[in-house]
Design a protein around this nucleic acid. Structure first.
Lengths: 145, 145
DNA sequence: CATATTTAAGAGTATTTTATCTTATTTAAA
DNA sequence: TTTAAATAAGATAAAATACTCTTAAATATG
């Protein structure tokens, strides 16, 4: 089940690296992130520009510049990042693509699918980047292959 | 959450129409299906060729030809169609795209995502096309806009 | 001030997905 | 046996997504 585009996958991995290995009171360069995760530097840069424009990251140019979280990691929820990367309507889509699929005139799998989306949305809403960063730092979880 | 490609969405809607409005002991033409659902005839034809090749549909050429289910609708499960259209590895994908994401070296959202995929897989495994066709025939559920 | 380092912006390219079109083959029925 | 109706096959086109590249702007530091 491919739930995220490449932009979503790369963006999440990159921001999680930033969260997991924060440079104390300073910016981390995109080059370091893309190198560590073996992602295209230019592609990550483009994705991060979007996250910066959406107020999730802040960026600073010049030597010792880079990117950083705009808020503390425990105040950025997974759902914020996913919606920023995949669109605000991420959880509003009908499984079989019907426009305005809802309780009024539902598709045959509407109820079940709504239930699943709600569960996922809840989890993403409760999960902060801090929690995920912690997991990665614990070495029991990974961000690359 | 875009869980299915256009092929998956169109293919599901088209096969569900076939299930919901079966022509007794005969084939339904792809033209009728695509017309009714406002889908591209050629695109549906291509998708159905795949379902025929995979043994989910049977087809017959010539006048009064068309397509039909290869087995009774209660013996074709939603998961069969989804896997035929989206790939057998549909439920094996890591949310953030890590290869071989598993219990051994999981990504930070592995456990939760596995749980969700399992729930969806279970539902799709239990849900037959007959059940969905029934719903559509009841007029309380729709296949088009 | 000159230089090096970094992100910003957006143009450009490649690949994949989606959709269309053409021709061939099969088959029923006039 | 001719014709029309249907799917099969695959080439082609269009659009979306994924990725790359170039230039500009900002900024720290020697």
């Amino acid at each position: 089940m491919k739930a995220l585009s490449q932009v979503g996958k790369y963006g999440l991995r990159a921001i999680l690296y930033l969260v997991a290995y924060p440079s104390e009171n300073s910016y981390m360069s995109i080059r370091q992130i893309s190198d560590e995760l073996n992602l295209s530097f230019h592609f990550v840069t483009k994705i991060f520009r979007e996250l910066t424009a959406k107020g999730i990251l802040i960026s600073y140019r010049g030597p010792s510049g880079g990117v950083a979280l705009a808020r503390p990691a425990d105040q950025i929820m997974l759902i914020d990042v996913v919606k920023a990367l995949e669109g605000e309507d991420y959880f509003d889509k009908c499984l079989i693509g019907l426009p305005n699929c809802g309780t009024a005139k539902p598709c045959p799998v509407h109820e079940f699918w709504k239930e699943m989306k709600t569960k996922i949305q809840q989890n993403f809403t409760e999960t902060s980047l801090a929690t995920l960063g912690e997991k990665i730092r614990s070495q029991e979880f990974r961000l690359d292959d």
